[in-house]
């Protein structure tokens, strides 16, 4: 009896402290929305350069997510299924973009893809510009967001018993076919959530993108320059609009992925 009371007491305290955390996250968002008001949203939506920047952010983030998935998912599968010396090292390398300040990531990318960079210089001669172009934006976004899909996919692949693939191969399937027909459907939820996280991280990137591609301006860069030049009055409505769009898309995608069937919970 006493024990039970005590245990519930712990839960009450955890709940109260936890509530503070939730409020801490939600208050600034609500406050910004109230501050902007409906008229602010309308004004921001009518600002063509702001809308262009938001659209650019969203499209570049889609490219970054697609490329991260293309290269990251096979890597995740490999890491989930193979044991090899140096595996821990590779896994740590994948996490580097998450832990370095993004402005540093941008500078590092610049030394490679900048106009005088290792790859940037020869490509520039061929007429392909990476810095200050869509390519540069996508590269910066990919660099900082790819770890999310890699880690999420890896976790998904690890959760699928490799013996299921064995059985499929025993029935005549190639490994590729086994993975596509059995493993991928079973961890589709991890892949979707990973992709959403990657996209969200890409769209919110500022530091790395700004260093490698100040122009064309993505939403975050646009908001930053507006803030510098015209102050809060013009930058806040655009920021609020971007936030609103992101939240709506985020909610839609999360709802879809939450409905995705979890076979192991049948």
């Amino acid at each position: 009896m006493n024990m039970r009371k005590k245990a519930e007491g712990t839960m009450i305290i955890a709940g109260i402290i936890g509530a503070i955390m939730v409020i801490f996250i939600i208050i600034p968002i609500i406050s910004m929305f109230i501050d902007v008001g409906i008229s602010g949203f309308i004004r921001a939506a009518g600002d063509r350069s702001a809308m262009k920047a938001i659209l650019l952010s969203m499209i570049a983030a889609v490219y970054a997510t697609a490329l991260s998935a293309l290269f990251g998912i096979p890597l995740a599968y490999f890491l989930a299924r193979k044991k090899f010396p140096g595996k821990k090292l590779i896994e740590s390398i994948i996490d580097i973009p998450i832990v370095v300040p993004h402005i540093i990531a941008g500078i590092a990318l610049l030394t490679v893809f900048g106009r005088h960079g290792v790859l940037g210089a020869p490509l520039d001669e061929l007429g392909i510009r990476i810095a200050d172009s869509m390519i540069g934006i996508v590269i910066a976004m990919m660099f900082v967001s790819a770890p999310f899909i890699i880690n999420s996919a890896k976790e998904g692949f690890e959760s699928v018993d490799p013996r299921l693939e064995n059985v499929a191969m025993g029935l005549g399937a190639s490994r590729t076919r086994a993975v596509i027909t059995i493993t991928v459907p079973l961890c589709m939820k991890n892949l979707l959530v990973g992709a959403i996280m990657t996209w969200a991280r890409a769209i919110s990137e500022f530091g790395a993108v700004m260093i490698i591609a100040y122009y064309p301006m993505v939403a975050t860069t646009h908001i930053y320059t507006e803030y510098l030049h015209s102050g809060l009055e013009t930058s806040v409505p655009i920021a609020a609009l971007l936030l609103l769009i992101c939240i709506i898309i985020f909610v839609i995608l999360r709802t879809i992925s939450a409905r995705w069937k979890r076979y192991d919970q049948d």
Binding site: R163, L164, V167, P185, L186, Y263, D264
Partner: peptide
Amino acid sequence: YQDYMLFPN
């Protein structure tokens, strides 16, 4: 296999 390994999907 002992635990059948039926494709759950």
